[in-house]
Amino acid sequence: MSRNVVMQIQVDEGLRARFHTAAARDRRAADQVLDELMRAYVARRAEGSGGCGSLAAGDERDLEALARDQRGWRCCPFGE
């Protein structure tokens, strides 16, 4: 049986406000949207593909670009 837990995270105040506005526009609670995003992220990582932003051995990509991609959810179906 699943048990709900509380998470505390630090996010930019403006981002938090825009997130709540976007969720409200979709008539969804913010926790539902976060749950969906987390499940999609975990599923993508579990596929073994490494998802976007994974750094394989010998990967020559720019680490700054990698960090931007990870923070920006650029390859996430919910992001840019």
Results as ranks from 00 to 15, higher is better:
1 M>K: 11
1 M>I: 02
3 R>D: 11
4 N>T: 15
5 V>Q: 09
5 V>L: 13
6 V>T: 10
7 M>D: 09
7 M>C: 08
8 Q>M: 01
9 I>W: 05
9 I>T: 12
10 Q>T: 08
10 Q>A: 13
11 V>Y: 02
11 V>L: 14
12 D>E: 11
12 D>L: 06
13 E>A: 14
14 G>Y: 01
14 G>P: 00
15 L>T: 01
15 L>F: 08
16 R>D: 12
16 R>T: 10
18 R>S: 15
20 H>F: 07
20 H>K: 11
20 H>C: 10
20 H>D: 15
21 T>H: 11
21 T>L: 09
22 A>N: 00
22 A>D: 01
23 A>P: 06
23 A>D: 06
23 A>W: 00
24 A>Q: 04
25 R>S: 12
25 R>E: 09
25 R>G: 10
25 R>A: 11
26 D>R: 10
26 D>Y: 07
27 R>D: 14
27 R>Q: 13
28 R>I: 05
29 A>H: 05
29 A>L: 12
30 A>C: 07
31 D>V: 03
31 D>T: 03
32 Q>G: 14
32 Q>R: 01
33 V>W: 00
33 V>H: 05
33 V>G: 13
35 D>C: 01
35 D>F: 04
35 D>G: 06
35 D>W: 00
36 E>C: 06
38 M>E: 13
38 M>Q: 06
39 R>G: 01
39 R>S: 06
40 A>G: 04
40 A>K: 02
41 Y>I: 01
41 Y>D: 11
42 V>L: 14
44 R>N: 15
45 R>P: 04
45 R>D: 08
47 E>P: 03
48 G>V: 03
50 G>C: 03
51 G>L: 05
52 C>H: 08
52 C>M: 13
52 C>I: 09
53 G>V: 10
53 G>S: 05
54 S>W: 08
54 S>C: 12
56 A>F: 07
56 A>G: 02
57 A>G: 03
57 A>P: 05
58 G>S: 06
59 D>I: 06
59 D>T: 03
62 D>S: 08
63 L>D: 13
65 A>N: 07
67 A>H: 06
70 Q>K: 08
70 Q>G: 05
70 Q>M: 07
71 R>F: 14
72 G>A: 11
73 W>G: 04
74 R>C: 13
74 R>G: 11
74 R>V: 14
76 C>M: 10
77 P>M: 08
77 P>V: 13
78 F>M: 06
79 G>C: 11
80 E>I: 13
80 E>M: 12
